[in-house]
Nucleic acid binder design. Structure first.
Length: 667
RNA sequence: GCUGCUGUAGCUCAGUCGGUAGAGCGCGUCCUUGGUAAGGACGAGGUCACGGGUCCGACUCCCGUCAGCAGCUCCA
């Protein structure tokens, strides 16, 4: 006998095998029509999946109100898309077609090169399939039979997947929809007719099973919603997000440029962008000094031997600029990281335990030869400056130093109003042996790191095994850009490798008067200035808080008669340390206001006859609008205070969430 | 690096069937002298990314190079 618990607390008992669809029917025809899938305990299943014959289960019927149902419908929509593609083109090999954060995709191996021009035909075919309203039918088979079926259909990728990825599964499931039969775990909605409005979005290449050495497939992306309004709202959000793309704003607001003549992935900071960067650097430098860091400077190149000792060469040679070859076999490397140089500073004299921790900080510019296809904007570049520092401390000091690093990173992000980030604790993969240092040491370090992180209540803390560097565990601060792509900004990493005898053999003299090996911590709260500013541009949608705004205030004269007074005001603003400009063109005030608004200037000071007479300015706030007149001195004080307090008044909305994090239903 | 798409004025883009280019914004000059998101007129500005090829003729078609975009893979 089976006892079924429903969400309202009631229970139902069944003597025979029963499917969720039948229970829905019993409860009421309206629910039966609305139900798209079911949740049995914690598992989402199709409505025709038989429940166990014995015991007790909880059952929730999923309708359009449930987010889980949306994912199920999208997966079904992916099947419909695959079916349409197979109808339109010959020799289509099916690969994977999962649901992703805001839609779905399906990977195909096929001769025809799909382009956006094919979309209307595919969409039309999909609409035809949905109108036919055929059911999705689940078929379970023993693996041998499944193999035979896939082989019979000529689906070589599925055959391969059964033999590799699914070799431990005794039975496998298919979903049939008309002539379309696909190896699939499911679940699916009951019939094609319930699939809502959809749209194909893009096509791109993808490797079979994510392996660059294997066959390249064509990946078709799409999305699907319950209602037309939701679909349109989503597409509109995507468009809005694109409008604050830092690559676009960077050009429009003249913040940075990349020129082929200089080189791919090499950023030119234009004057306005350079202001933002230098203010950030100045601020971070002040914080570093407060927190006991010592600024240092090191060269941009180092001998290859330095990197052979550190282990970066030739291990990372792939992603480095080729060495510079001089006479007599002398070779130099453009530095891919700052740590070897800092290690040499630590080693410049013997160290005592009394002076630890030693904290060496530098805005160090590094060069990495990233693959051309990876580059873009400021978030992935070939030359960048890290707000880098290396801490050398005793084993006992690790937890406290780690905490200090996290605190500083948090403080910096908080001050800028950057709150939507997650913290990824990268731990070792227990199955791998690529790591240096004893397992015992790792276990202790990971436990200490986790304890510190938990105490600090970091947002969205996730422990990810296998995400550690080979030399030590780390904590990364990860943010999403306007297209939902995640970027690592700040990072704190423990390092047992560089100090080890196999590498630099670092030492300090302990209280026992014998040498000990220090632990090293790499940390960069911003990560790289390039990436950080890129993300900041999107975070503020180009409208920086007053303290960072390249142009803080613009004086504008109502007519040219008041230019002289305007220039006096402008001079006073500048004397007070504000970045001020003046607009004295022969334009109407409305046009000047509009230009300043579009240029995202935080404050406008309007001067005309009244202001000149009374020694005042009319203050217009970019966000609030007209604030009325006030004496010049008062306006200066108001702005100066806002600068000093680093006030953040407005940030752009959250990400459009175009992320592609995979959800459960693969194959 | 791989697959696909794209490259026209400083920016955003149009350009039909192959017959040597166009708009808006911006910029310059002049008129207008105004009160919180666009006043008006005139004008300058192009080796159609670059290099080959096909053709009587190429911005247009083909090949290559470079760069950008999307995704994949990678990311110390």
């Amino acid at each position: 006998m089976l006892k079924v618990r429903l969400p309202d607390g009631s229970t139902r008992e069944y003597e025979h095998s029963v499917r969720p669809a039948e229970i829905a029917q019993e409860i009421g025809p309206r629910l039966a029509r609305a139900a798209l899938a079911a949740k049995v305990e914690d598992r989402v299943v199709s409505l025709d999946t038989p429940l166990p014959a014995e015991g007790e289960v909880s059952l929730r019927l999923l309708t359009q109100k449930d987010p889980e149902a949306l994912a199920v419908m999208r997966h079904s929509c992916a099947h419909v898309m695959a079916r349409a593609v197979m109808r339109l083109f010959d020799g289509v090999q099916l690969a994977f077609g999962p649901t992703i954060e805001n839609g779905f995709y399906y990977d195909f191996g096929m001769e025809h090169k799909l382009t956006e021009e094919d979309f209307p035909a595919i969409e039309a075919e999909m609409r035809r399939i949905i109108a036919e309203d055929e059911p999705f039918e689940r078929i379970e088979t023993p693996r041998e039979q499944a193999l035979a079926v896939c082989a019979g259909l000529g689906q070589a990728l599925k055959v391969e997947h059964i033999n590799e990825g699914l070799k431990d599964h005794a039975t496998l499931s298919f979903y049939r929809q008309g002539e379309f039969l696909d190896l699939c775990r499911g679940p699916h909605v009951p019939r094609a007719g319930v699939i809502g409005p959809f749209k194909l979005l893009s096509v791109a290449g993808a490797y079979w099973k994510g392996d660059a050495s294997r066959q390249q497939l064509q990946r078709l992306y799409g999305t699907c919603f319950f209602t037309q309004q939701e679909l349109e709202a989503h597409l509109q959000r995507v468009e809005e997000a694109k409008r604050r793309d830092h690559r676009l704003l960077g050009r429009q607001l003249e913040l940075f440029a990349v020129h082929p003549m200089v080189g791919q992935g090499l950023v030119l900071w234009l004057p306005r962008g350079a202001i933002i960067r230098s203010l950030l650097e100045q601020w971070v430098r002040e914080e570093l000094v407060k927190r006991g860091y010592e600024p240092v400077y090191t060269p941009h190149i180092g001998r290859v031997e330095l990197y052979q000792t550190s282990g970066h060469y030739p291990y990372y040679a792939e992603s480095q600029f080729r060495p510079i070859d001089m006479e007599e076999g002398e070779r130099y490397l453009l530095k891919p990281m700052n740590c070897p140089h800092h290690v040499m500073i630590y080693q410049s004299r013997p160290r005592s335990y009394r002076e630890l921790p030693v904290r060496l900080a530098e805005f160090g510019t590094v060069y990495r030869y990233e693959k051309s296809g990876e580059l873009g904007g400021m978030t992935r570049v070939r030359g960048f400056t890290q707000d880098d520092a290396h801490l050398f401390c005793t084993e006992e000091q690790v937890a406290e130093e780690f905490r200090g690093c996290l605190e500083m990173t948090q403080y910096i992000l908080r001050t800028l109003g950057l709150t939507s980030y997650r913290v990824r604790l990268g731990f070792r993969d227990p199955a791998s042996n690529k790591y240096v240092g004893s397992e015992d040491r790792w276990a202790k370090a990971q436990a200490a790191l986790e304890r510190v992180c938990r105490e600090m209540d970091l947002p969205h803390l996730e422990i990810e095994a296998g995400e550690a560097a080979f030399y030590g565990p780390k904590a990364d601060f990860v943010v999403a850009d306007c297209l939902g792509r995640e970027w690592q900004l700040g990072t704190v990493q423990l390092d047992y490798n560089l100090p080890s005898p196999e590498r630099f053999g670092l030492e300090y003299i302990g209280p026992d008067n014998t040498p000990h090996q220090p632990v090293m911590i790499h940390r960069a709260p911003l990560g790289s200035l390039e990436r950080f500013v890129g993300v900041l541009i999107e975070h503020f949608a180009g409208a920086f808080p007053l303290w960072l705004a390249p142009e803080q205030v613009r004086v504008m004269a109502v007519s040219e008669k008041f230019e002289e007074y305007g220039r006096q005001v402008e001079a006073r603003l500048k004397a007070a340390g504000l970045r001020a400009t003046g607009d004295y063109r022969a334009e109407k005030i409305g046009a000047k206001v509009r230009d300043a608004q579009l240029r995202l200037v935080p404050y406008m000071l309007i001067v005309g006859a009244r202001e000149m007479e009374q020694g005042t300015v009319s203050v217009r706030d970019r966000i609030e609008g007209d604030l009325g007149a006030m004496p010049v001195q008062q306006a200066i004080e108001k702005l100066t205070r806002e600068v000093q307090e680093k006030t953040v008044r407005k940030v752009a909305q959250l990400t459009a969430g175009l992320g592609t994090r995979r959800e459960a239903n693969t194959y």
